[in-house]
């Protein structure tokens, strides 16, 4: 019995990092997370992250946004990541200017059928980049409500 307990404990301990690694990889499968990783701690950059506890009322599991100012090279990276992430998207809406995407909306499938992931992007008049990632058990209509309801999160 003691041996069984020991073996069980050992297996759990060995599986934990693998499981944690798997969960982490799930969150990072979109290329846009490279933008967050590369720019979150730079000057003139604001990153916001809200977890499930704060978003549960809206059936959202994850919110993450980044605003980047003064890094023109970041725009190239963002556009490259968006081009990669839009493959497999359920819905794509893009606004282009001179052939370049200046604002975009992508709805992508989530881990389960009821979960969607959304990427929202905009380049401002002075080159400032806003990139938003939302994940949750919501559809496009629900997101419209969130986007255009100013009392959101209260």
């Amino acid at each position: 019995m003691k041996h069984v307990k020991f073996t069980t404990l050992l297996l759990i301990l060995l599986c934990l990092p693998t499981a944690a690694g798997g969960a982490t990889e799930m969150q990072k499968e979109l290329k846009i997370h490279d933008v967050f990783r590369q720019y979150w701690k730079k000057k003139n950059v604001t990153m916001v992250e809200l977890s499930r506890e704060m978003l549960d009322t809206y059936s959202l599991a994850h919110y993450r946004s980044i605003t980047i100012k003064g890094y023109p090279e970041a725009l190239t990276l963002v556009r490259r990541c968006l081009a990669a992430d839009q493959e497999g998207a359920k819905k794509i809406k893009e606004v282009t200017d001179g052939g370049e995407v200046v604002s975009a909306y992508y709805q992508l499938p989530g881990e389960t059928a009821d979960v969607n992931r959304f990427i929202l992007f905009k380049v401002g008049a002075h080159g400032e980049i806003t990139l938003v990632y939302i994940e949750g058990a919501i559809d496009g209509d629900d997101l419209i409500t969130i986007l255009f309801t100013k009392q959101v999160y209260k």
């Binding site: 000057k43 950059v45 916001v48 604002s103």
Partner: peptide, 30 residues
Amino acid sequence: SSGYVVIDGQCYADTDRARTLALEALQEVA
């Protein structure tokens, strides 16, 4: 933290500020 904001590399575990800035970013892209 359940909500945080990073400004110029400095992390603030301030949920109210995080909410406000999240809303601003949403309105900006919307």
